[in-house]
């Protein structure tokens, strides 16, 4: 496999992981624009652990995810008090604070960036991505999935039905940050060098775009969104300097034509004939 192709596929897998990190809070009705910050925490924490203590990179990446989740849990309490545009701004601020802190943290290289010694290849990263997709899909087949969607759709009614809406929002935000942190760790251990500037607001917005454009109502939406919008710029590479213009145009056209995203839950049920299949299965059961 050429280095170029492996690089693209690694980016694809990392972006899929990032996309699920954004999907969890979005599914609960929250926009997390600080996701790059949590990815950075995962990247730096795992790189520091594997560099300094020479622990297995896979373990380091998982611990990096937990570190990102721990920070998310702490900031979730004040940040999730805000709503709508203010929530987006508050999470954006969290991302900026993390980035600024890392720029000034000399122990991980500061503004000069941080080399990572341990190296993982595509199969490991792809396995992580597949694991994240399966785990999130399983999670959304539980009552948690129903509850989170209920909180997203109508917080007031969910509350009256006895759902602890805040607990579900905090859980979705925190789990999403754990996943983003894992994505950061994967990135760090493949590209062997990380710098705080990479984890900027542009990354956060791109990740959220994967989810919004792929579809927020089904667990397959982020997968499709991340795949299409990682590969599309590469396919447009032929048009050299204009490719980002083409890419942006594609994004705008898609938002105009399918504001609900590429995939919706109802559409999947219809496409697979599940509407009827589920019905007859339930009758039989």
């Amino acid at each position: 496999m050429s280095g170029y192709l492996e690089g693209i596929l690694v980016l694809l897998a990392v972006n899929v992981v990032f996309a699920y990190g954004a999907f969890l809070p979005v599914a609960a009705g929250q926009l997390n624009l600080g996701l790059a910050g949590f990815a950075a925490i995962g990247a730096y924490a795992s790189a520091y652990l594997s560099n300094t203590y020479a622990i297995d990179p896979i373990l380091a990446i998982l611990l990096g995810g937990i570190a990102a989740g721990a920070v998310a849990l702490i900031v979730a309490v004040p940040v999730l008090r805000t709503r709508g545009i203010y929530l987006a701004l508050a999470t954006f601020a969290v991302g900026q604070i993390v980035q600024a802190a890392l720029l000034n943290l000399e122990v991980v290289g500061g503004a000069a960036g941080y080399p990572v010694t341990a190296f993982i290849r595509l199969p490991t990263i792809a396995a992580f991505a597949a694991g994240v997709v399966v785990l999130v899909a399983l999670l959304f087949a539980t009552r948690f999935g129903i509850a989170v969607t209920a909180v997203h759709d109508d917080e007031r009614v969910a509350d009256l039905m006895g759902l602890n809406t805040r607990a579900f929002q905090v859980a979705a935000f925190t789990l999403g940050s754990v996943i983003a942190g894992i994505g950061g760790g994967l990135y760090a251990h493949h590209f062997s060098f990380i710098e705080a500037q990479y984890f900027n607001i542009g990354l956060s917005i791109t990740i959220v775009l994967y989810v919004l454009l792929g579809g927020t109502q089904t667990v397959l939406g982020p997968l499709l969104g991340a795949a299409v919008f990682t590969l599309l710029p590469e396919l447009l590479r032929g048009s050299a300097n204009w490719r980002y213009v083409h890419f942006a145009a594609a994004v705008i056209i898609l938002m105009a034509l399918r504001p609900q995203g590429l995939l919706t839950a109802a559409q999947i049920r219809r496409l697979l004939g599940l509407d009827r299949a589920a019905l007859s299965r339930e009758r039989a059961a």
Binding site: L138, F140, A141, T142, R143, F144, G145, I146, A147
Partner: peptide, 8 residues
């Protein structure tokens, strides 16, 4: 209860 796979 929340982690029961009710939809599986």
């Amino acid at each position: 209860g929340v982690l029961q796979p009710v939809n599986l």
